[in-house]
Structures are given as C-alpha cells and as structure tokens.
Design a protein around this nucleic acid. Structure first.
Lengths: 198, 198
DNA sequence: TGTACATCAGTGAACGCGCGTTCACTGATGTAC
DNA sequence: TGTACATCAGTGAACGCGCGTTCACTGATGTAC
C-alpha cells in the first residue's frame, strides 16, 4: 500500500487515454477536451499522448469509431435477441421499436461516445474504420424499417432515426429532466405514439 | 471613400456584438466563441464588450433568449396563418405538421441561435427572459398537439418535438447531407410518415 | 544463457500564442442650471 | 444660449494562465545471435 515507485512505462496508456478522455467529455463535452489536461489527470507527462494519438482529432476519431461499433452491436442484439423464439417482439413494429429503444439506451449509457459521434466537425468521419462502423449501424436501422414497412423503408427508417435521435439529444441536453421518466420508457411511449399504425 | 477617422463610439456595439457572435457561432459553434476574437472582428478593443456583456455566458444567454422569442413567434405564425380562411391546413393534423415544419425551418435558418439554445450548459437557462420565451414556445407546441390529439397532448407533443428536433439536429450536423432534399420537405415526409393516423 | 542493440514509451524544458480579466485613462454625450 | 459636470463607451497596457507543439533526452523492452 505504500506508494510504490511509479513505473516508467504506463502499461496501457492507449486505453487509459481513451477512457479518461471519455470521462472528461462526459463532464465538459468534446470541444472542451484538452490533451494537456488529459495527460495531467493520468499522471503522465503532457508529451506522452502524442505517442498514441497524433492530435485531438485522432483521439476523437478513435472514440467515434468505437462508439459506432458499439452502437451497431447494440442494434444487432436488439434486432436478433438471444431467445428469439420466446420474444414477443417478433412483429415488425415491435422489432423496430426495440431498435429505437436500443438507440436511446446506447446514447444515455454512453453519452461521451454519443456526443463525439454527433460532432463530426471535431474528428475525421471519413476515417475507414469509423465510416464502416457508421454504415453498419445505418444498415441495421434501415433493415428494421424495411421489415416494418417494406414499401417505404427509407421514410420510415429516417422518421424513426429522427424520433429517437431527437429524444436522446433532448434528454442528454437536460431538456426532459422534469419529466422524471426513464428515457427508454419515453422511447417506448413516443415510438408507440408516432408509429401507431398496427 | 477615404478612410474616415473611426469614431470613438461604435454607435450600436450591443447589437453588433450579438450579430458578429452569431456569425462566429455559425462558423465554429458556441463553445469555441472567444470574446477577444469577437472584439477583433468588430475592430474594437478587447475590453469594450465587457461594457455590454459581463462575460461569455451573459452574451450567450441574450442570444438564447432572442432565439426562443423568434422560435415562439414562428410557431405562433404557423399556428394562426394570416389568411386562415383560405388555408387548407385547418385540420389538427395539418396544423401540427406546420408547427413541426416551422420548428425545422427556424433551426435551419437560425443555426447559431439553435445551437446556443440546445447547449444550456453554456448559458443561464433560468434567466427570466430566456426562460419565459422558452415556455411560450413550449406552450404553442403542446397546444398544437392538443388540437390534434385531445386525449394525449403530452405524448403527441413530445413525439412531435423529438421528431423535428432530431431532424433539425441531424441536418445541422451534416448527417443528412447526402439526401439532397430540403429539410422542410423532409419534415413533411417524416411528419406524415410518423403521424399517419388521419 | 548471455550479451548487444534497435525500438518503443515516456520525460521535462522550452517556445510562442490566444485567452479572460483588471486597471487607469480618455473621448463623447447628455443633462442641470 | 452657454457652461459645468456626471455618466457612459471605448482604449491600450499589463497580468497570469493553459494550451499545442517541438526537441533532445532517458528508461524499459524485446529480439537477434
């Protein structure tokens, strides 16, 4: 328990930089992130991060790529739940609603990832890995819309995206705090309200 | 045309500060706004703005208040058009859709106001004037929802708000650029798609 | 098993910059008499 | 109509701070032989 001499090498600075950056973004948003403050919080010299990320945009790009991958995973899991046979949400409408709920849950549970993903001017959205993960998430969304409304998957997919993105954004900005209802419950309510053609 | 000696007093620095700040926010977002850069762009000493706004939060609060007032005006105009008798949108659904279209049009036409309004951590949302304007806008929105669905004005109002807020946010972030359709047209499409119970 | 050496990860000092804030000041305006 | 004076709006120098970037360096690791 005595303060052991801090080892020269950090061990896993790459991952630590990402995690601490996420914590800082959660506190003050992606625009306010400073690499020097990040290094300070990790107890590392301020020049150390450049060995892992060339600059702030590179770090945020890694976070965005990770976020899109996690979002796509979450949508995938919502679209094809493990106990599929027992699930009552086999209908197109029910499945599409679950996609929306998963989207909102991801945003609320990973606000820093979501904030970075929503600010494409701060990173490099065309970086291959980030772009591919984003496309995968979009594909899952529109596939769900296609199962609900085979005739107009694009309009329905876009409407669903806007609806849930708006909810997530308003919630995270604190605009819905006085509702005192968990955001995933709100997602079910407004999802059922808007897409009530059974 | 010869450079006249610049007068000591600016004339209307208060308004000029707001307008130039809006232009800068449109370029780089509210978080990146610097009072020194603002003064520089107006050709005024960097200490001059403090005579009009105590600090950055005060300036952004004024912008948010102005934005909410303009949004409320736009919603009011959409709810009660001048040539009411001739308008075909007398039905509750049509009128509610027009509210949504007005919301999106405001966001697209006043991106800087909208960006500030959406970032309540950067200003003082409880400042009386800003808060009152915000309440007026909310009242107009829920009144429109009540005319469409008297039984569930809150759920319908919230769903409409999320839908149009999501569209505006995604559009402004550049996520819908490849659609190549004016955002107000998208608003009509997804509004009709989501709220298709005639 | 042992040694030499290349490579990688992190240090700490230095740089120039833009920021917000403070302060004593000065020029312009408007009002009281 | 004219003067005195309070008030307001803007100046410019100074401060201390945190930032990103660069650089020569050093400690640790892993691999070739």
């Amino acid at each position: 328990m005595t303060a052991a001499a801090r080892p020269y090498h950090h061990g896993n600075l790459h991952r630590a930089l990402l995690d601490e950056a996420l914590a800082m973004i959660e506190e003050s948003g992606p625009a306010a992130l400073s690499l020097r403050a990040l290094a300070r919080r990790l107890g590392v010299s301020h020049a150390a991060p450049t060995h892992h990320f060339a600059d702030k945009a590179a770090l945020l790009t890694a976070i965005a790529a990770e976020g899109y991958a996690q979002l796509a995973d979450a949508l995938e899991a919502a679209a094809a739940p493990a106990g599929e046979a027992t699930a009552s949400s086999a209908s197109g409408a029910g499945a599409f609603l679950e996609l929306g709920v998963a989207y909102v849950r991801f945003a609320v549970d990973h606000p820093a990832h979501f904030a970075v993903m929503s600010a494409p001017t701060l990173y490099h959205p065309d970086e291959p890995e980030a772009a591919a993960a984003g496309r995968r998430a979009a594909r899952l969304l529109y596939a769900g819309a296609g199962r609900l409304a085979p005739g107009s998957p694009r309009a329905v997919g876009l409407a669903g995206w806007c609806l849930m993105h708006g909810l997530a954004t308003l919630w995270l900005a604190g605009n819905l705090r006085d509702l005192d209802v968990p955001p995933t419950d709100i997602a079910r309510t407004i999802g059922a309200t808007a897409f009530s053609y059974t």
